[in-house]
């Protein structure tokens, strides 16, 4: 009843506007659901950024460090070191990072992989 009263009071322009608005909302509403996946991978060496790209950019890259070449792999929204000239291969053992705030460091080869983005973690920092 109230709806039909409302409808009757609307001009043609009003009705068109209402539909345009509704359509706009329906089209844009899915945007609100995709969460925090705008993360970027940064590869740094001695404070300089060697590589920066969204985590969605899959591929393999090689970076020269003091000990030699390290190779990183970006795939399925995560990154890991696949080969490294460092003695303990700790950086390879650290596995894969995919979330903002996570990092892999290869201290001997001066390589730092870091994911930048809005962190969903409930902690500011982790002490280890």
């Amino acid at each position: 009843m109230a709806v039909s009263a409302l409808w009757r009071r609307m001009t043609l322009g009003d009705r068109l506007l209402l539909f345009v608005l509704l359509a706009l909302i329906l089209i844009t509403l899915p945007v609100t659901r995709s969460q925090g996946k705008g993360a970027r991978l940064l590869v740094e060496q001695d404070g300089a950024v060697l590589y920066a790209a969204p985590l969605t950019a899959s591929g393999r890259w090689r970076f020269q460090g003091p000990l030699g070449e390290s190779e990183i792999e970006v795939a399925h929204g995560g990154a890991r070191i696949v080969s490294s000239p460092c003695p303990h291969k700790l950086c390879i053992a650290l596995g894969r990072i995919a979330h903002p705030g996570e990092l892999i460091a290869c201290v001997p080869n001066h390589l730092l992989l870091r994911i930048e983005g809005e962190s969903a973690s409930s902690h500011d920092l982790i002490t280890r």
Partner: peptide, 13 residues
């Protein structure tokens, strides 16, 4: 401003 660097044998953020 958020930066990290390898120093002191570890990652300093």
């Amino acid at each position: 401003v958020r930066r990290s660097q390898i120093l002191l044998g570890t990652v300093v953020e």
